[in-house]
Computed example of a mutant assay.
Amino acid sequence: MRTDLSLYLVTDPGAAASAGRTVLDTVALAVASGVTAVQVRYKHADARSLLALAVAIGHSVPRGVSVIVNDRVDVFLAARRECPTLAGVHVGQGDLPPEHVRALVGSDAVIGVTASTHDHLQSAAASPARVDYVGIGVVRATATKPDATAPLGVDGILRLAASCPLPAVAIGGITTADVPALRRGGLAGIAVASAIGGATDPGDSARRFTLAWSGA
């Protein structure tokens, strides 16, 4: 399955709850307005809760929207037994190395890797396993990812992406005003969490990002 990363929603259960919605409601509204991929991220959930959420999202989105589980390779494997259309897993620098992830998930699954430095990117590109994309960030400091490295800014993201042959997605405090420069700079997509998940109208927010991307 082709993975369209152009507008990549990272789930934020806290933001959804603060806005009076479930994560499933948020995903449905965002996907209907242009989101092309969904990362199931629920940092403080137990394995069963993350599993249930991944399966529910996998069954709820239309074909062509990739659903990717954050960090937990074990949860992805369990979820894929119930929802075979789940696309893959996204891992950070402190998680299993890509070659071990690939051995577990198989050749058909998507693997994304978080990167914030030149060394991270070179390691991902040189991995003996196939890495399908890198997530580079953060653009700006964001409450969604308080443990992130220092903000890189749009220019910093573009410099790093240019040094790596893998498709790259920018993440972290991205606004619609950043989108044209990121797309023109060769990014494969933008990842957004609270700007959509915590919006009063997630559909309208997703639509604005979609228009900014398509019009760049």
Score class of each variant (00 low, 15 high):
R2Q: 13
G189E: 06
H118K: 11
H90D: 12
E99T: 07
A19W: 07
G14R: 14
G88L: 03
L77V: 06
G173L: 02
D178Y: 04
K43T: 08
L160W: 02
Y42H: 15
P167F: 02
T3L: 09
R130C: 01
P165H: 10
A52R: 15
A79R: 13
D204L: 13
R159A: 10
V61Q: 07
L160K: 06
G20W: 11
A150R: 14
V91R: 14
A79M: 05
I174K: 04
V169I: 14
V38H: 13
D108W: 00
V55N: 11
G137T: 04
S194F: 00
I190G: 06
K145A: 09
V154L: 01
T142V: 02
P128M: 09
A181N: 07
G137Q: 05
L86S: 05
G173S: 06
I174Q: 08
R80E: 05
P151A: 05
H59A: 12
H118W: 09
S107W: 08
G34I: 04
A15L: 03
L211E: 15
P98Y: 08
V138R: 09
R159M: 01
H100R: 15
L9D: 12
S49L: 11
T210M: 09
S205M: 03
E82G: 00
L77H: 02
L187F: 01
V101Q: 07
R21N: 11
V23M: 03
S127N: 08
A32I: 05
T11R: 11
R21C: 03
I68W: 09
Y8E: 10
G186L: 05
D155F: 00
A78R: 14
A181K: 14
I171W: 02
A16H: 08
G135L: 09
A181R: 15
R72T: 03
R2K: 14
C164K: 09
A16M: 10
R207A: 13
V65A: 08
D46N: 15
V38G: 10
G198N: 11
S194W: 00
G156N: 12
A87P: 08
L96H: 06
I111Y: 03
D25N: 10
T3H: 14
G94V: 03
C83R: 06
F76S: 05
S6G: 00
L7D: 08
L77E: 14
R102V: 01
A109K: 09
G197A: 15
L166V: 00
T142Q: 09
L9Q: 12
S163L: 13
S49P: 00
Q122L: 10
V89F: 01
F209V: 04
P84V: 00
A28E: 15
R81Y: 00
R159E: 14
R48M: 09
P180K: 10
D201W: 08
V67K: 11
W213Q: 05
A17P: 05
D147F: 00
G112R: 14
P13Y: 06
A216L: 07
A150I: 00
L53N: 06
G106C: 01
A17N: 08
P128R: 15
P84L: 01
A37Y: 08
G156A: 06
L160Q: 06
